[in-house]
Design a protein around this nucleic acid. Structure first.
Lengths: 217, 217
DNA sequence: GCGTGTGAAGCTTTTCACAGCA
DNA sequence: TGCTGTGAAAAGCTTCACACGC
């Protein structure tokens, strides 16, 4: 357990595959369920069946960050949950700005295990006069022109972009200019950001087209 | 070009990586833009810069399915677009049922390049009395109890699940019993389906937690 | 005994680099 | 000449299988 003590950051022995990090999210969610059910510990085999991954993957994934399990027993549910929260950084209350309060933006603001689960949506923006000023999930919707000031004044860490593709780059440029550290983009377009800004994309069409391919084969 | 003629299915020379199939989606979208701009052809280098992948990936990905390019020139935009539509199966008008007409469900029904882009949402369902009977994106919302009959009667190929996690398995069981061929699940829970049913999951928390990890490192 | 942690093997995916064709 | 298509090498990721410690 020497790779992770408190907030600090000794480098893990080996590079952590991105695929592993994405699976950690799922382990974390499942541990929440086990916790609610009062399960004190869980084996890699059980975590595997609850997540759809393999037991070897579970053990390997967790071992990148430390030795969290007890041989012969498994992993302690609540302590593993805390460890994963620390590893994923979702114990820090990242401050989020959400731009584009359409249906997708609203869905994300209301998503369980998102707002108030390590992430605080502290501001919401839109360009539509009809929604500006209304309240969505406890946030008054502000004009998108205020984004740049708000990122700075509200110390926003991360901006979620749920605007139409044509408007996305402009939104991102403003957020970046104001010093945001990460962008989560749902608009189906390739964005350009400086290398010090983290960018992730979610393309809602990809999985449905993947299924289409599978059916068509 | 002997791996893809019309609707049939001679086996490609080599197994196609799932990662390749997911990227095809993005190439297809970008080709649409190029087409609108009147670009007659495009090089792997340009496709790379428009998608964020590498030129070698683009060429390798396309080469799994045939020799679509012209050396010294590039790929013909509109014919490549047609080829990709055929490969992805999005030239077939898959019949879709969407269960859970909350914000996420509405967002998907309105998503550009989804409904009426190879996919027809032919029925929408919910369990909430308050939305049943209302019209969303041209579809009257039906009670979820009608799902099983509707899958059969309306020849629904694919069901999109945008209900809360606790309700998802039940929805899927009904869809499967009625003979649906594919499920796209947005509920953050592990679903069980028989092996002949294609299942894909989209977990909206995964990417935001991945960004959190990147910031926290 | 049981289930983790991990070298080693195996498989998948990406990248390199260039022959070959328009 | 310019850009594709593709062997071969490299890198990345998963699986195997078992030593080790509770």
């Amino acid at each position: 357990m020497r790779s992770l003590d408190g907030m600090d950051d000794s480098i893990p022995r080996r590079p952590v595959p991105p695929t592993t990090v994405r699976r950690l999210s799922t382990y974390y969610r499942v541990l929440g369920t086990l916790q609610s059910n009062g399960q004190p510990s869980v084996s890699s085999e059980t975590l595997a069946s609850l997540t759809g991954f393999t037991a070897a993957q579970v053990r390997r994934d967790l071992a990148y960050f430390g030795s969290f399990g007890k041989r012969g027993v498994g992993y302690d549910v609540s302590s593993l949950q805390e460890q994963l929260a620390a590893i994923l950084g979702i114990d820090r209350g990242w401050r989020i700005g959400l731009v584009g309060v359409g249906n997708l933006g609203r869905a994300l603001m209301a998503y369980p295990g998102f707002n108030n689960q390590g992430f605080d949506v502290v501001a919401a923006f839109d360009s539509e006069g009809s929604v500006i000023g209304s309240t969505v999930n406890g946030q008054r919707v502000r004009p998108v022109g205020e984004l740049e000031d708000a990122v700075h004044d509200e110390r926003i860490d991360m901006v979620i972009v749920t605007v139409p593709a044509a408007a996305a780059q402009q939104v991102v440029d403003q957020a970046v200019a104001a010093g945001v550290r990460a962008i989560l983009n749902f608009a189906p377009t390739q964005l350009r950001v400086p290398s010090q800004v983290q960018l992730s994309n979610v393309d809602l069409a990809v999985e449905v087209e993947y299924l289409s391919y599978s059916l068509a084969e």
